[in-house]
């Protein structure tokens, strides 16, 4: 699903974020990406959805060579990816329902499909009863659940999450994790950068540790491995 072959990322200012990364994430995997701040986790995430371009090496996401995508092809790559951010990124002047429906509107889905899918994913994150509320009226955990609903509403093959529980308390973080696990069970690949030690340790998923721009560890049923 995601395949990196000798991928490096060097920013314009000479900062080496990733050097010579080779790894393979098969379909249906649940992967935690861990490591100290500034080690390259975020860059790794950004490469996958083509926010950044690899400087060297080959990166294949869902069968597309990301490094060689034309700018006009980027939207079609992203339609197969769901992206979740630490800061939710919901639109404050749209309701919960409109926020989720927005992701389907911009790829020109039909009105009927939108109604069906949005209700379905709001059910899945347990917030259908808040459909008419505005994001400002929800708690942080609820907002992140809406953001997840938006990320999966277009049936992506991969969900990418950059510190999705970074702003949440432990109990709420577990609610969020259970939703990700449920999505993963339905066959969606999950790649998550995180600092949440207890979550990583308890879930026993694949753990990729990035330190000083290189892969330091790649364990099946791994642990967080750092003191906070």
């Amino acid at each position: 699903m995601i395949h990196l072959d000798g991928v490096s990322k060097i920013y314009g200012n000479g900062c080496v974020a990733l050097s010579d990364i080779t790894l393979d994430i098969p379909k249906g995997d649940f992967v935690f990406v861990v490591g100290p701040s500034g080690a390259g986790k975020s860059t790794f995430i950004k490469l996958i959805f083509r926010e950044e371009l690899p400087t060297k090496g080959k990166l294949i996401v869902n069968g597309r060579n990301v490094g060689e995508l034309e700018p006009s092809e980027i939207p079609y790559l992203r339609r197969n990816l769901g992206i979740v951010f630490q800061d939710y990124r919901l639109l404050p002047n749209k309701t919960v329902y409109e926020n989720v429906a927005f992701a389907m509107q911009v790829i020109e889905s039909s009105r009927r499909d939108i109604q069906k899918r949005v209700s379905h994913v709001l059910d899945l994150v347990g917030l259908r009863h808040k459909a008419k509320n505005f994001p400002g009226e929800l708690s942080g955990g609820e907002q992140q659940r809406i953001a997840i609903a938006r990320a999966i509403v277009n049936n992506p093959v991969v969900v990418i999450a950059d510190e999705p529980t970074g702003n949440l308390d432990p109990e709420t973080s577990w609610d969020i994790m259970r939703i990700f696990e449920r999505i993963n069970r339905d066959g969606t690949t999950i790649v998550m950068a995180t600092h949440d030690k207890s979550v990583v340790d308890a879930m026993k998923k694949r753990v990729i540790a990035i330190e000083k721009s290189r892969i330091a560890r790649d364990q099946v049923k791994g642990v967080y491995g750092y003191e906070d």
Binding site: F49, P75, R78, R89, A103, I107, R150, N154
Partner: peptide
């Protein structure tokens, strides 16, 4: 700009 950013992440084409 926030809306535009989200549109890009969810795969809206530039012309859209």
């Amino acid at each position: 700009r926030k809306e535009i950013g989200i549109m890009k992440y969810v795969g809206a084409t530039n012309w859209f």
